[in-house]
Structures are given as C-alpha cells and as structure tokens.
Computed example of a mutant assay.
Amino acid sequence: MAIRVKPGASRTRVGGTHGEALVVAVGARAVDGAATAAAMAAIADALGVRPRHVRLVTGATSRDKVVEVDGLEPDEVSRRVAALKDPAGA
C-alpha cells in the first residue's frame, strides 16, 4: 500500500489521502529514519496489527513510501485502509 508520511506533525494521525496514498502524520522528524519508524508503528496501530507485520518495501528516504502488511487477509487490509482514507464514508 502507498503511504505519504508527514513528519513533524503536532500529533500522530493516520487518515486522509494524498493522491492515492494514505496519509500518515507523525511527530518524529525526518532524521535517521525516525519518521519512517514512527509511521510504521502508526500504521500497525491503525490497522490493528503488530508492528512487526508492517514492512517497508520502498521509500526509506522519501515521504512517499510503499509498505506491506502481513497478518491480515488482503481484502481485510483493503477494507481497513479504505476506512482510514475516508473516515466519513466508513
């Protein structure tokens, strides 16, 4: 799944879209992978999976990243991500 990380946010939030990507706002700064690690933890929490089930596929140094989620069926991941992208429509 594609995500867009917004480092330096006032609070951690997972929801909304940037193009087709899920927006993940984190308080951590984009220094030494801190924002990426915080984003992975935030996604795991939002999807209800353990942090070890969220893996970075591409984008280690970019705000645009692709992550893979294990521990859930693909249809369930899609359903949960859709709810996060449009909370009003869920």
Score class of each variant (00 low, 15 high):
Thr36Asp: 01
Asp45Trp: 06
Ala34Ser: 13
Ser78Thr: 15
Asp70Thr: 13
Lys6Ser: 12
Gly19Lys: 08
Arg50Thr: 12
Gly48His: 07
Ala90Trp: 11
Thr12Arg: 10
Arg63Lys: 10
Gly15His: 07
Ala60Asn: 03
Ala44Leu: 02
Glu73Lys: 09
Asp45Tyr: 07
Ala88Phe: 12
Gly19Glu: 05
Ala9Ser: 15
Ala46Lys: 06
Val31Asn: 08
Val49Cys: 10
Asp32Trp: 12
Glu68Asp: 13
Ala90Phe: 08
Val26Gln: 00
Asp45Asn: 13
Leu22Asn: 05
Asp86Gly: 09
Val81His: 05
Ala37Pro: 02
Val77Pro: 01
Ala28Val: 00
Ser10Met: 11
Gly15Asn: 09
Pro51Ser: 05
Ile3Met: 07
Asp32Lys: 14
Leu84Ala: 10
Val77Tyr: 00
Thr61Glu: 11
Gly19Met: 05
Ala37Ile: 03
Asp70Ser: 14
Lys6Tyr: 11
Thr12Leu: 00
Val23Gln: 07
Arg52Ile: 11
Gly15Thr: 05
Ala44Ile: 05
Glu68Tyr: 07
Lys85Cys: 09
Gly48Phe: 09
His53Ser: 15
Gly33Tyr: 10
Ser10Thr: 14
Glu20Tyr: 01
Leu47His: 08
Glu20Thr: 08
Glu76Pro: 03
Val23Pro: 11
Glu73Asn: 07
Lys6Glu: 14
Gly89Cys: 10
Leu72Phe: 12
Gly33Ser: 12
